[in-house]
Design a protein around this nucleic acid. Structure first.
Lengths: 160, 160
DNA sequence: TTTACTGCAAAAGGTTTGCATGGGT
DNA sequence: ACCCATGCAAACCTTTTGCAGTAAA
């Protein structure tokens, strides 16, 4: 918290939008709690706090929060969308090239969903995961494609 | 196709439900196409085919198709749910207990989506992946919880 | 002063449901 | 004959939107 509202403020400013009491209240309320939230719950929390923010404003501001990288949609359950905080730099996974060994680090938030499902399905308490994806990188693909074409040419010349 | 409708028929029978022309048409239409679908699109396809199935019936049968393991929800986009086929037994991943070493095999179709995203983002051609998830199993969790409680008791007795 | 933002309420759009009818078993 | 499944249309619920007023910049 604190840093989130600053991120949001500078996002708003960078977009030439206006910072309002309502926006501050919404961001504040979202990040005053850890974990998922939905519009109805957020609206209730704000109301309880004495805020007069309307649901329409919540709905209108969620796209900004997503675009600013502060939250993301996690799932559509029980007839409505659920959101969660996106924290700083997340755990990353590896994508590596079978041929040249190049490694690309990538962040894959959806694995959290996988973990959640595993927890509820198997009763585990997930501590960590490791996702390694392997394949051919763009360059090696091109090289391989070139080779194939060369082979074909050789074959044609040799046979025809 | 073919096998899917058989799976559905036996599912219906096993549940003591009734097989109807509408159900056959829905399943047939879903599996006559590869890839994702949504209710609106499916409804249109059926209509075009001359079927008189109503949307209500589609909506009422989707839970059965999900329960029978033939389809699954993939995403909620553009204001409505999207579904996809679930094919036979897919590649499986591992969920293992840090404490007792127990291993659960699970199938995680959503990794396919991850792979697709990686391919388009990084230009790789993905060949395989390996997802290992680690945590504490239900039994070990219980045991650990018991230990914590015992420790607390000991502490209380020792201090009070 | 300009015009983006807000609240309200109505509208939109996907999904569910009540009811009477039709059809499997 | 029983009663599950269907079609229709209304209801439901979340989300979006039009409008007039409000308030940032």
């Amino acid at each position: 918290m604190g840093s989130e509202i600053e991120i949001f403020r500078s996002y708003i400013k960078s977009k030439g939008l206006r910072n309002t009491r309502e926006r501050e209240e919404i961001v504040q309320e979202i990040f005053s709690n850890k974990g998922h939230f939905d519009v109805e719950g957020l609206y209730m929390r704000l109301k309880r706090r004495g805020s007069k923010v309307s649901k329409a404003s919540i709905y209108r501001n969620i796209p900004l929060l997503i675009d600013s990288g502060l939250i993301r949609e996690v799932s559509y359950k029980d007839g409505h969308m659920h959101y969660e905080h996106v924290h700083g730099r997340a755990h990353h996974c590896h994508l590596s090239c079978i041929e040249c060994g190049k490694v690309v680090e990538f962040v894959e938030p959806s694995i959290k969903e996988v973990e959640k499902r595993l927890e509820s399905r198997y009763g585990f308490k997930i501590i960590e995961h490791r996702l390694d994806v392997m394949g051919y990188c763009k360059e090696c693909l091109k090289r391989r494609l070139g080779k194939v074409k060369e082979d074909e040419k050789t074959r044609r010349n040799g046979n025809g």
